[in-house]
Design a protein around this nucleic acid. Structure first.
Length: 302
DNA sequence: TAAACGTGGCG
DNA sequence: TCGCCAAGTTT
């Protein structure tokens, strides 16, 4: 097989996707077409921040973060608490702890350079299959199946003709379809991956796909099948108010606003459910998101 | 494998 | 108003 031949089956889709991406791609600061030089470290930081988090909320935190810690060594030299504070209200703050731990691992194990190898990336704290594939693809231009929620949805619709992808882990079938979709050439495959993500984010959206402007509409299996609806039951309600998660968030918000340690009693102010407060506090300490000092004082980790 | 894990914008 | 959803990972 010629090395540069795209997979024959999906070639028309790739041929339509790439020109669309060239014209529609957003100029995001972690992309190579942005003005600043984009390091593998910046790509890694962006991917961690973008986990379950909209682009618009990531942008300001990312800029601040990269300006302050332009290298893994810089972040590794800071405290975990500095990372949690700089994370602000991005959500899932243990990502900040894990990113800090990843920076330390990169510094000690990889001489301060973000590794390009998928397995080495995957071994870093907070880096799962998606993030390892994304960094290897986008920063190092390798050929990997980059299966985030956007790509899964786009391929599920366009190739398989089904309304939704599975909610759980990526299936072997999904991975095979994704790999078959990618051109053999690694550089081109990396661009296809980011283009699929962009298409899912801007056009083939979860709730309101804009098929009228979709470059894949002509060959889309879902459209051809007249948009069959999802067979999956609705996902369980995502409650937040009144949960332990909210309690953890509130405690952390107080500690982020302080430079010194805070009394347990003060953190508990306004919290009617003492058992829940205690669960939240203990959980945060267990996750190393906060640190007990002298028994009844708590602070961000030093 | 399912559940836990933040936060906020949007229809 | 409120449920859905957003570039997942870990245990």
């Amino acid at each position: 097989m010629p090395r540069f031949a795209p997979a024959a089956t999906n070639s028309p889709m790739v041929e339509a996707l790439l020109p669309w991406f060239a014209g529609a791609a957003r100029d995001l600061p972690w992309r190579p077409n942005s003005e600043a030089s984009v390091t593998p470290w910046a790509v890694l930081v962006s991917e961690i921040m973008l986990q379950q988090t909209p682009v618009n909320r990531v942008l300001p935190v990312f800029r601040e973060w990269i300006a302050r810690w332009p290298t893994p060594g810089g972040l590794a030299a800071a405290t975990p608490g500095d990372a949690v504070r700089a994370w602000g209200r991005l959500g899932y703050p243990r990502r900040a702890i894990r990113l800090h731990a990843a920076a330390a691992a990169i510094t000690s194990r990889h001489n301060g350079d973000v590794p390009s190898d998928y397995a080495l990336l995957r071994a870093l704290p907070g880096v799962g299959d998606y993030t390892a594939a994304a960094v290897a693809s986008f920063a190092f231009r390798q050929r990997h199946a980059v299966l985030d929620t956007n790509v899964r949805r786009v391929l599920s619709r366009a190739v398989s003709g089904t309304a939704t992808h599975g909610r759980g882990s990526v299936s072997a079938a999904e991975r095979r379809i994704a790999l078959e979709f990618l051109p053999e050439d690694a550089e081109r495959a990396a661009t296809v991956s980011v283009a699929l993500m962009e298409l899912g984010a801007l056009v083939c959206q979860a709730r309101a796909p804009s098929c009228a402007t979709c470059p894949l509409a002509a060959s889309c299996a879902w459209r051809r099948a007249d948009y069959p609806v999802s067979e999956l039951p609705a996902r369980p309600a995502q409650t937040y108010v009144g949960t332990d998660r909210q309690a953890r968030g509130a405690i952390l918000a107080v500690l982020r606003s302080r430079t010194d340690a805070v009394q347990r009693r003060e953190l508990r102010l306004g919290w009617a459910d003492v058992a829940q407060f205690n669960r939240a506090l203990d959980g945060l300490a267990l996750d190393r998101l906060i640190e007990p000092v002298d028994g009844d004082l708590f602070q961000l980790p030093s």
